[in-house]
């Protein structure tokens, strides 16, 4: 749609600007402020320049947390995106069953994140949880509080449980928008199931899949509550992701300077990757809009 140039539109944006400035810019400036200062308590601050940033860039703790975070996000995307598409392809198209599937699938998305953690904490326990108990009876050694591999598996399965529906619902919305004529044409051409998927469904889902990947990347990169409740970042540090580490540093140890520097770098990494996704997404939008 052609948009008219109208500078007065700024007035319509003003409320959002004021609100977001209050709840984002002011706190962010506080963070920037802390990141370049040092304190010895008593509210006395000293200029520290880029010291914290330098220290963090060489800190093994941050490197490890970042590495774990990247691996985690990649595994999440590699499982949830194909699985979500697969589920969407198998969903009923309309009627009662479609509504039922939609409602049941959305259920995990609406559960508070710490309750998601609690559910899996209970579910995985060897003594009282169905999953842990069953695995234990099958003779599989499984203890997510002591074995870091089991902890990783638990956290990943939990995230798949929690968020695959989001990808599936997005892909489903994309599939619903494909006109029947496309399928009929494919039938006339005797296209195989795979070809229908590859040349009709996948291109039509591209836009929504980008949203799905963007959302899943952002949220898995910021994950805090669920693994914190289930494993508390342990055993050892094996499931300490960036946010968990940051909260430990900022609210636990009250190391304001390093925590602030950490926050800024963390934010910048997310921004950078999201910007790439966003640019690709808007370009796709434009191409489809023509």
């Amino acid at each position: 749609m052609e948009k008219t140039v109208n500078q007065k539109a700024w007035f319509l944006i003003l409320p959002v600007l004021i609100l977001v400035a209050f709840s984002a810019v002011i706190p962010l400036m506080t963070v920037v402020n802390y990141s370049v200062q040092d304190t010895f308590g008593n509210n006395q601050f000293f200029w520290a320049g880029l010291e914290w940033f330098e220290e963090l860039l060489h800190s093994e703790r941050l490197h490890d947390a970042l590495g774990r975070q990247i691996i985690f996000s990649l595994i999440i995307l590699a499982i949830e995106v194909p699985l979500g598409i697969f589920i969407a392809l198998n969903m009923p198209k309309k009627g009662f069953w479609a509504s039922l599937c939609l409602v049941l699938m959305s259920l995990p998305l609406l559960i508070p994140w710490n309750v998601v953690g609690t559910i899996w904490q209970i579910f995985g326990r060897v003594d009282i949880g169905l999953l842990g108990y069953t695995l234990d009876k099958l003779g599989i050694a499984y203890n997510y509080t002591q074995d870091s591999f089991a902890a990783w598996v638990t956290v990943i399965v939990m995230d798949v449980w929690h968020w695959t529906s989001l990808v599936a619902l997005l892909a489903y919305a994309g599939l619903q928008s494909i006109p029947d004529a496309y399928y009929q044409a494919a039938k006339i051409d005797q296209a195989s199931r795979w070809k229908v998927f590859r040349f009709i469904e996948l291109p039509k889902m591209q836009g929504v899949l980008m949203i799905a990947i963007l959302l899943r990347f952002m949220d898995s990169f910021m994950i805090y509550t669920e693994p914190f409740v289930v494993t508390g970042g342990g055993p050892g540090n094996s499931t300490t992701f960036l946010s968990i580490d940051l909260v430990k540093m900022a609210l636990g140890q009250f190391d304001l300077g390093p925590a602030a520097a950490f926050s800024i770098m963390y934010y910048l990494v997310i921004l950078l990757i999201s910007y790439v996704f966003y640019t690709v997404m808007t370009n796709l939008d434009k191409r489809d809009g023509v």
């Binding site: 977001v20 984002a24 002011i26 706190p27 962010l28 506080t30 963070v31 952002m218 990169f221 910021m222 805090y224 960036l242 946010s243 968990i244 940051l246 909260v247 900022a250 609210l251 304001l256 925590a259 926050s263 963390y266 934010y267 997310i270 921004l271 999201s274 966003y278």
Partner: peptide, 14 residues
């Protein structure tokens, strides 16, 4: 949109 991408952990203390 960048505010949607901001990790809550970053904002907790400020």
């Amino acid at each position: 949109l960048t505010n949607r991408m901001a990790p809550p952990a970053v904002f907790a203390l400020p």
